[in-house]
Structures are given as structure tokens and as C-alpha cells.
Amino acid sequence: MFEFLLNPIYQMWIVQGLLLTVEITLFGVLLGLGLGTLLAIADIYGNRPIKVAIAVYVEFFRGSPLFVQLFLAVYTVPAILNIQIDHLFLAFLVFGLNSAAYQKGYMKGSMETILDDQMQAGLSVGMSKIQTLRHVILPQAYRIVIPSWTNEFCSLTKSTATLAFVGFRDLVGAGRSILINNMQIIPVWLVIAAIYLAWISGFSKLMDIIYEKKKIPGIELLMQ
């Protein structure tokens, strides 16, 4: 049943597919974290036009499926601009931009639980607004946001399965390639499913451990 796992070419496809899935997810959640933080700060302190622009950005990326966004990025954008752009680059970008729209919300929520009191405290000891954000607010906000960030990681990883349908050989793409020559449909998808499950559960477990280790003592009281 699972003999296909012994074929070196299939093994290579699966490993390369997993690597692509892992790379694009990690890139996506990290770009999303950076951009999401900037968007959250801009949304808290920005003026009205900035807030509206951010709301439109977030509504677009959260309101439509990543699947459609991927097609827009890979086919529509190059067609409108009439230039050739590397598909992989565009795919990386769209995962990052999509994740930023979600993470902006998580970061904003996380910062708002601690913002008011601690900003005043920071200003009163003579730090500037930016210094307080950088040295007081953000280090705590990042620790509070870990569970939401882990959820975002899980859902982004699952979304990367769409890559197989715009011509990449990610983990699902590897499964599809194997099935061209091999009719073991159930075993192939079971193996692919197990690899996703192991990678997502393993990484979430790691993040849970980091969260517990880095948790701000007594933060539960603040979150209520």
C-alpha cells in the first residue's frame, strides 16, 4: 500500500514539497508579523485617511479567499502591469500581505490590552512615544500575541495547499505528481495529511512551550 514511499523520486518530491510549504509559511507569517505590527501602530495613532486605507486593505485580504488572491497575484497583476514577474516571488508576497491583514488585528488587540497605562508610565519617566512603543509596549505585546500568532500559522500553512493549483509542487503538488503514475489515492493523501499534521502540531507545540516560558506573570488578570 505504502510502497510508493520507497521510490527515491517520490521521496524527493515530498521533501522538496514540504520545504516549499515550510518556507512560504514561515516567510508569510514573519512578513505578516512585521507588516501587521506597523499597520497596528498606524491604525492606533494614524489620522482618518490612514485608518480608512488600512480598513480597506484589511477588508480586501480578510474578505476574499487566499485562493482568489493567489490567482490575482500570479495571473492578473502581471497581465495588468504587462510585465513578467517571478511567480514564486508573487506567491511569497501574497501570503505575507494576507497574513499581515490578519495579524494587524491580533497585534492591535494585544497592544490595546496594555497600551494606555504603560504609555503614560513610559512618557512619565521621560521616554518618547516611539521609545515607549519599542522598549515597553511591543516586547509585551509580542508575548501576549503568541497564541493568536500560532493560530495564524496553522491557518496559513493550510492555505499554502492552494499553491499546487497555480503550478507549484508544494506538498499537495507532490501528492498530485505522485498520483499521475501511481493509483494509490488513499495512501498518498493519508501520507500527505500526516506530514501536514505533524509539522503543524509540532510547530504549535513549540510555540505553546515558548508562550508558557515567556508569559508575563499575572497576564491572565489583565486579559479578562
Binding site: C154, S159, S204
Partner: peptide, 20 residues
């Protein structure tokens, strides 16, 4: 909850529709 958090919907759709 862990299983459905960790397996992409696309893989489940392919497994159930084409496999089962």
C-alpha cells in the same frame, strides 16, 4: 480539534472525494 487544525481542507477534500 487538533486534527482539523492540522490538515488542510484541500487534502481532506481530495482524500474523501477521490479516495473514498
Amino acid at each position: 480539534e487538533k486534527i482539523f487544525r492540522g490538515i488542510p481542507e484541500i487534502v481532506l477534500l481530495l482524500l474523501f472525494y477521490f479516495g473514498l
